[in-house]
Design a protein around this nucleic acid. Structure first.
Lengths: 218, 218, 218, 218
DNA sequence: TATGAATGAGATTTCATTCAT
DNA sequence: TATGAATGAAATCTCATTCAT
């Protein structure tokens, strides 16, 4: 009897804990969508609460404050991106397609309306303490991509040039999607993701013709 | 006496008007830098006033409010961009270099610390009335670029594909620069502009090899 | 069966009741310490709950709310003080030592970290209904001391003067102890109690020399 | 002309500055009264604003926040008290009357409804940074009184004993006045101040009779 | 008896903006 | 042209309290 009681209470605790965590994740998803659509500063706690179907005060049951909500949004986003990165880095084969796959997942992550996201932008909104962790993860992601690009250059697949700047321009092409994509537009998120990834990877590819032609006139 | 007084006051008015206009432009430059660095919502009127060396209250002698300041910032930015666009469209020769030149000017416009800018983002912060004008100019700019891209495709210089999405990805690569550029970094603004433009134009160029290679694995 | 059940439940109820009462007292002790150390308004229900090792919500099984907790704290404190007062009044002998004993117990009551206390301050925090009872008890205590002082004056032991004001100054010297006493300081609570009582009673004693000397210069 | 213009603007600036400072002092006076009557935590910014005849938001034109208002209240109070202390310490003559004069001024400072005060209590409400300065001033005051007491003991005027504890009991008798004094009561502030000072100084005076008599029975 | 979740009321504070001078 | 003073509205956040379990 005692054992069964213990077991029950343990199960209860676990169930509660899991429900609590699930609720937190649901809130983070909702918040991420709000942040993406309105920006961190323009998004009010009331909006987030509405999106998550809670009272504003109740948000503070789950998170210490708005900053922390943003922090966890970004943390989750970056974890997903770093997961995709890990896969791209461990896959074999030419770098181009691997970068393409990564780019697709990156964009889908931004546009996903269930998971919400794009919250890895606006790092500056975080207080210094929280910012450090996020910047570390973000830099890990960026360095990982740069490493892939470097690998492609070594193999002769990708163009020589400043890998850091190229990586950032690559990410810019991807990230910008969150700014302009409209669900009611002509393309589905996967279609957009593929098109943008096509563009972004092409920008890295080895230039076939004389690079002179690419130079600006002015 | 009366005539001379009139003349003087007319001259005075003109001088005042011109000074007023100069002051307005100076304020807009300062404001554009603040908006770029901090974002519209995070930027306070006090910050703008400090950057422009005025008291916050005095800003209201020059502008109706924060919205209007953003409006004029964006208006000025877009005018400069549309100027660059016009030049790119009327220039003869292959499309690639013309787009490259435009891209360079676009990035320089974002990074310019005298003129300030990047304020053409955050259109959503404007109240509907002001927003319409800005969106019109922004769309004009985007359509112009898309037209150039279309011309390049027709000539066989640029890759087939969705020109609208490609244009936005192109702009994303450029615009993102404002997020990551740091003056104390390794490259000067013109150097960054050239590197980013290289990438951005390459992404549009006709794909030489089998498009399959660009496809994602997943 | 029914009888046995009744009997058991009666016994159970009694035990529960007693446990309940014990628990209530424990909570009041903890709350009294928190109120003394932080003040009524600064003390949160969470703090009280932590000090009593309960969840905040569970406090409401024992008390109607924060006000009621303060009420019972003050009630208990004043009962103890009135108990000490009764003893001092019924004791025979000169008034000085009897007041001294009372003062010692008063201070010990404030500093006692088991019983907690000092909660008889902050009467204003109570809602009117509860306030009346507490004020009545507090006034009973004060009047009792004033009566003792009056007795001392009649006997020639204590100084003439405004007995009400003197009583309050006397109580001030005692009560203030709760503000400055630190357990890690040089004196134990009983030592402090004796020293403070020495001072407080001396202030009431008949002035031997010319009262002029006590007068202010200014 | 130019000089006179300069002079005028300088005078203007000075006038403005002085008005600003005056307004600050008025606000502090009002706030001190509110703090004394309601306690720091119970007093809302709205109450303070009402007492000072401003909108709550406008308080932030003069002070950084509630904490800072309390800080300046306490600072002003302690400056006044330290002023009185300095006078008491530099005056010649027996210590008793000098302490009496200081005590009178101390109590008057608490009860003064123009200057407001009693705000030197509740030091714990301050954030650490501000608290340090106030504690330093408060300790200076306390040490000054203790030195006076020590001088009295040396001269044989005052009773031997723990000077620190005696000083605190002395201050307790004075400070408590702020708790119980009611303007509609039988005594005027100066009358109360004299009565309380009489008591407080008497508590320090050399005990004429056998100290045994002062001992508690229990 | 016990507690996680939930909430309305209200606290402090910020901010864009206006106004008197 | 310039600004200190003033304010309403709203934002974030806290807190005592309730409720379902």
């Amino acid at each position: 009897m005692v054992r069964s009681s213990n077991a029950r209470s343990a199960a209860g605790a676990s169930r509660v804990r899991r429900r609590n965590d699930l609720r937190r994740v649901e809130i983070l998803r909702a918040a991420a969508r709000v942040f993406r659509d309105r920006g961190f500063n323009a998004a009010g706690m009331r909006e987030i609460a509405d999106a998550a179907d809670l009272s504003p005060a109740n948000l503070y049951h789950y998170f210490r404050g708005k900053d922390e909500i943003l922090y966890f949004c970004q943390d989750r986003s970056l974890d997903r991106l770093n997961g995709a990165l890990a896969e791209a880095r461990t896959t074999r084969g030419p770098v181009g397609p691997r970068l393409h796959g990564l780019a697709v997942r990156h964009v889908l992550c931004l546009l996903d309306d269930v998971e919400g996201s794009a919250a890895h932008l606006e790092v500056d909104a975080l207080p210094p303490r929280l910012r450090r962790t996020i910047i570390a993860k973000r830099d890990r992601y960026e360095r990982g991509i740069r490493a892939l690009v470097g690998e492609g250059v070594k193999r002769g697949e990708l163009a020589h040039g400043d890998a850091t700047v190229a990586t950032r321009a690559f990410l810019g092409a991807l990230n910008w999607t969150a700014h302009w994509f409209r669900p009611e537009g002509p393309h589905s998120p996967p279609a957009v993701a593929r098109l943008v990834a096509d563009y972004a990877v092409a920008g890295l590819a080895a230039r076939p013709r004389s690079p002179r032609a690419q130079r600006s006139l002015s």
